[in-house]
């Protein structure tokens, strides 16, 4: 199978969906000459740096028959549009009794490790998970990125699509032609016997690397990628934990009220899965600090293979 980058996979998904449905339009603060040439500047909208306005414009156009794909740039900038996200997009369908659909996709980059310091290294997906009313996507491979972006654009609800910055240039196999990944279905990236490691985004790759290393010691890791955080595929995660009896969750957001915490809760509040646990669960998350700039500090703030390995040894002890 051909290999392309995560970024190329996303671009392919967008182009294919714009070709498939002329109601798909884009709104972004950076120009996209390729897209503009292909689809025209009416559908490929270059907007002023007015996040609240264009976040709500996407929502209003969605409620009026279009399928906008709104790019916030970094998730950082979405915070300027919190009214439109929190008070409007996440509530608009339910609050109005389901009388209209709002098929809008909000794209943004996320995560640290890029030496761009506190404001531009955030991983706040749990803030959005908390709202109820938004679907939350967080892919880890080019194939999943493509398939899930296509599903997001076709979904009839507001979707927030997180694109981990450290994954943009990574490559992976992506099927030719139509490739759609359903929202709400986790993927076992590596089957194993001893410990379930649930990784998010970049940390799926890191968990797989640790799995390779520990395999030499005879330790067998099962690496599970939720791929979508709302809805969360709790069944798949629980099934893995019931098999291995041990759970480590790895995420680069701080642990407090995080997706990692939610995953741990979903596992431990299920009686059958709880009884299958053979060790306390472990979260490997970012330190509770704004992500610092200097590389040694940044590395200390974020999870790494050493900390993942330590957590795995702890649940095996």
């Amino acid at each position: 199978m051909r290999e392309i980058t995560f970024a190329q996979a996303l671009e392919e998904a967008l182009i294919e969906e714009m070709e498939r449905d002329e109601r798909v339009i884009t709104l972004a603060t950076t120009r996209a000459p390729g897209l503009e040439n292909k689809f025209g500047d009416k559908r490929v909208r270059f907007t002023p740096i007015s996040e609240a306005a264009f976040t709500g414009i996407g929502l209003g156009a969605a409620g009026s028959g279009f399928r906008p794909v709104v790019h916030w740039g970094m998730v950082t900038f979405s915070f300027v549009a919190m009214d439109q996200i929190v008070n409007q997009a996440s509530k608009i369908r339910y609050m109005f009794g389901g009388q209209a659909d709002f098929p809008v996709t909000y794209r943004c980059t996320t995560g640290g490790g890029m030496q761009v310091a506190a404001q531009h290294s955030q991983s706040p997906y749990s803030m959005f998970m908390h709202l109820a009313g938004l679907k939350i996507i967080l892919p880890s491979t080019p194939a999943d990125a493509k398939g899930l972006l296509k599903s997001s654009i076709r979904d009839n609800n507001p979707v927030v699509f997180f694109e981990c910055s450290r994954l943009a240039s990574t490559t992976g196999p992506v099927p030719d032609g139509e490739h759609v990944v359903p929202i709400g279905v986790a993927d076992v990236k590596r089957a194993g016997r001893d410990v379930t490691v649930v990784g998010l985004a970049y940390y799926v790759r890191e968990a797989l690397a640790v799995a390779d290393t520990l395999a030499a010691e005879g330790i067998s890791l099962e690496v599970v990628d939720p791929r979508t955080l709302v809805p969360m595929d709790a069944d798949a995660i629980r099934a893995s934990v019931r098999k291995t009896g041990r759970l480590v969750v790895v995420d680069e957001a701080p642990a407090t009220c995080s997706a990692a915490s939610e995953i741990v809760a979903l596992v431990t509040e299920d009686a059958q899965t709880f009884r299958a646990l053979r060790a306390p669960v472990q979260r490997v998350c970012a330190a509770p600090v704004p992500v610092p700039f200097s590389p040694p500090l940044e590395q200390a703030a974020l999870p790494d293979r050493v900390r993942i390995t330590t957590a795995i040894r702890r649940v095996l002890a």
């Binding site: 339009i25 009416k42 559908r43 909208r45 609240a52 306005a53 264009f54 976040t55 709500g56 414009i57 996407g58 929502l59 209003g60 156009a61 969605a62 409620g63 009026s64 028959g65 279009f66 906008p68 009214d83 439109q84 008070n87 409007q88 608009i92 109005f96 009388q99 209209a100």
Partner: peptide
């Protein structure tokens, strides 16, 4: 709200409906 008659909703947030109105107008323009 009554989307069937083009009433896209009252709004509890001051100015909250303004971007939504722009989105509806963008749809109309397209």
């Amino acid at each position: 709200a009554d989307f069937a008659i083009g009433m896209l909703g009252a709004n509890g947030i001051v100015a909250g409906g303004m971007p939504i109105a722009c989105g509806a107008a963008l749809a109309a323009q397209l």
